[in-house]
């Protein structure tokens, strides 16, 4: 996922059509959830019965998979999404302090979206940039060595 896509307002028929295109795939549920989130910015509760209906699963089936993966969100995110790595290697390189600094700067706690909808801050667990931590993704673009000036620079990118 690259730069934040414009969020299309929720449309049930469009959602059903998107899911229908996944039916022929092997294991269509995850691709369906991904395409819904990519298109609408999240997987709202109303999407679950539609996905269930098209893929002939129960709503419980869909709900279980949807809630298992933290990357699927149920409500739209902010215009920018900052995913900060909090896994062990980045922790060893000081990510806890970095995250605390980001939280203060944005006025947010991890997992929250700012009330003006500008930004969402999420914790993620390993971006595979362990030798260059602390690391983060901003709207899908990776940033690393996030201390001091580099972290300040990142924050200016988040909120220009």
């Amino acid at each position: 996922m690259s730069a934040s896509l414009p969020q299309i307002p929720w449309n049930a028929d469009h959602a059903a059509a998107l899911v229908a295109r996944c039916v022929a795939l092997e294991g269509p549920l995850l691709p369906a959830l991904h395409v819904i989130q990519a298109t609408f910015g999240c997987v709202p509760d109303e999407a679950v019965p539609i996905i269930a209906q098209v893929l002939n699963l129960s709503r419980a089936d869909v709900h279980g998979v949807l809630t298992f993966y933290h990357d699927f969100r149920r409500v739209p995110a902010g215009r920018r999404i900052l995913k900060f790595c909090a896994a062990e290697a980045c922790q060893a390189r000081g990510s806890a302090d970095a995250i605390a600094q980001v939280e203060r700067a944005l006025g947010l706690k991890v997992g929250e979206t700012r009330s003006d909808g500008a930004v969402t801050l999420e914790a993620v667990y390993c971006l595979g940039l362990c030798a260059s931590g602390p690391a983060a993704l901003l709207d899908g673009d990776p940033f690393a060595r996030l201390k001091g000036a580099r972290l300040d620079h990142l924050l200016t990118q988040v909120l220009p």
């Binding site: 699963l57 129960s58 419980a60 089936d61 709900h63 279980g64 809630t67 298992f68």
Partner: peptide
């Protein structure tokens, strides 16, 4: 019926 699931992890 598949009415139940485990939510979250």
């Amino acid at each position: 019926t598949f009415a139940l699931t485990i939510e979250g992890r």
